[in-house]
Computed example of a mutant assay.
Amino acid sequence: MSKLSPEMCTVPVDGEYDPTVMRFLHIRTHLRAELATGKYPYRVDITWPYDGDEKGLPDPETADAMKGFRERVIDEALERDKLALLAYEVVGEDRCLWCIYTRNIPAFQEMLNEASSELPDYPLEIYAEEDREGLAFGEVEPMIAAE
């Protein structure tokens, strides 16, 4: 799990687009206090679409590649020196989404490019916006109690 906070829990949740499909949410349990400091005003969503099995989950090779990306880029590079904090990860419905809060978008982008420069070209989609109140995290935070 995450280097800065090993306190992440996994919660099965219904599919967002297809309620008959299960997704898995890996969420940081103690992020609210960090967000309340105002040090992480920006949210970056990194999405990795994939062709999933009949349940919408990745094949083992893709799952391993996603795990490697997360460990090398998110856990080891972006969370180093607390440039960014992984809020949650959702896997299922043919995509993996990492929701990350950061202090600085340009520094985040530079570190992301540097950390992934020697990796294969993955089909990543990246979206960033200001989210000073942690609204995206707030949407999934109640699910911690379901764990």
Rank of each mutant, 00 (worst) to 15 (best):
M1N: 07
M1Q: 08
M1F: 10
L4D: 10
L4M: 14
S5Y: 03
S5K: 06
E7Y: 13
M8E: 14
T10C: 11
V13L: 15
D14R: 15
D14C: 10
E16P: 00
V21E: 06
R23V: 01
L25I: 08
L25K: 09
I27M: 05
H30K: 12
H30F: 13
L31P: 01
A33D: 14
E34G: 00
L35M: 03
L35D: 04
A36T: 07
K39H: 11
Y40L: 14
Y42A: 09
Y42V: 05
R43I: 08
I46Y: 02
Y50P: 01
D51F: 10
D51P: 00
G52R: 06
G52K: 04
K55P: 02
K55Y: 11
G56I: 05
L57D: 09
P58Q: 06
D59H: 11
P60Q: 09
A63N: 04
A65I: 12
M66K: 04
M66C: 12
F69V: 02
R72K: 15
D75A: 11
E79N: 05
R80T: 00
L85V: 07
A87G: 12
E89R: 15
V90G: 00
E93V: 07
E93D: 09
E93A: 04
D94A: 09
R95L: 08
R95Q: 14
C96Y: 01
C96L: 07
L97R: 11
Y101A: 00
N104C: 13
I105V: 15
Q109C: 09
E110F: 08
L112H: 09
L112D: 00
N113D: 15
E114H: 09
A115Y: 01
P120V: 03
P120K: 03
D121G: 00
Y122P: 02
Y122N: 01
P123N: 08
L124A: 03
I126C: 01
A128G: 03
E129M: 12
E130I: 08
R132G: 08
R132C: 05
G134V: 04
A136S: 15
E139I: 03
E139M: 11
E139A: 06
V140M: 15
P142H: 03
M143V: 07
M143N: 08
M143H: 12
M143W: 12
A145D: 12
A146Y: 11
A146S: 13
